[in-house]
Amino acid sequence: MPAYTNAKRIFKYSDEFKMKAVQWSFDPQRSVKDVAAALDIHPFMLSRWRKEFREGKYGPMKPTTKPSKPNAQLKEQDELKKLRKRIAELEEENDILKKWQRFLAEERRKHSNS
């Protein structure tokens, strides 16, 4: 087995930071992956913190409430998600209109040839 020359980087996060991350991840509009990306942590770590929270490691379970001031990145991600959804809807509408236009053109050709 090779000897490692670089020591692993280990970050220690405060319990308060973990609690806020867990509370944000319980928000129905946010996924664990989005919250983890915004906080620059691995999604698996956040999932582990959620499990520890459910097991009561960070104190008694409190009802989850929305954070008073969400992170700016989380707001941007929510906005991006909404915009991407809207773009997909508009593209679908555009495709339907193109199909309708082709259909009308074919109908005109059929009626003009008869």
Rank of each mutant, 00 (worst) to 15 (best):
M1S: 09
A3G: 09
T5Y: 12
T5P: 05
N6W: 06
N6P: 04
A7F: 05
K8D: 12
R9L: 12
I10F: 05
I10L: 11
K12C: 07
K12Y: 08
S14H: 08
D15V: 02
E16S: 11
E16V: 07
F17T: 09
K18C: 00
K18L: 00
K20W: 03
A21M: 12
V22M: 05
V22T: 03
V22P: 01
V22C: 06
Q23S: 13
Q23E: 10
Q23D: 11
W24N: 13
S25A: 15
F26Y: 15
F26V: 07
P28D: 10
S31H: 00
S31T: 15
S31C: 01
V32L: 07
D34K: 07
D34L: 05
D34I: 09
A36C: 01
A37D: 15
A37I: 06
A38C: 13
I41P: 02
H42C: 02
H42T: 04
F44R: 09
F44I: 09
M45Y: 09
L46Y: 03
L46M: 04
S47N: 11
W49G: 03
W49N: 06
R50S: 01
E52K: 01
E52Q: 02
F53E: 00
E55I: 00
G56K: 00
G56W: 01
G56T: 01
K57W: 00
Y58T: 00
G59H: 00
G59W: 02
P60C: 01
K62S: 03
T64R: 14
T65H: 13
T65G: 07
T65D: 05
P67M: 14
S68M: 10
P70Q: 05
N71E: 11
A72I: 08
A72M: 08
A72N: 08
Q73C: 07
L74S: 08
L74T: 10
E76W: 08
D78C: 07
L80A: 04
K81Q: 14
K81L: 11
R84V: 03
R86C: 07
I87D: 06
A88Y: 00
E89C: 04
E89K: 10
L90P: 04
L90G: 02
L90K: 11
E91Q: 15
E92V: 05
E93A: 06
E93K: 12
E93C: 03
D95Y: 06
I96Y: 03
I96V: 07
L97G: 02
L97W: 03
K99R: 14
W100V: 14
Q101C: 08
Q101K: 14
R102N: 15
L104Y: 06
L104F: 09
L104V: 11
A105E: 15
R108T: 12
R108L: 14
R109L: 13
R109S: 10
R109H: 13
K110N: 11
H111S: 09
N113E: 15
N113M: 13
S114V: 08
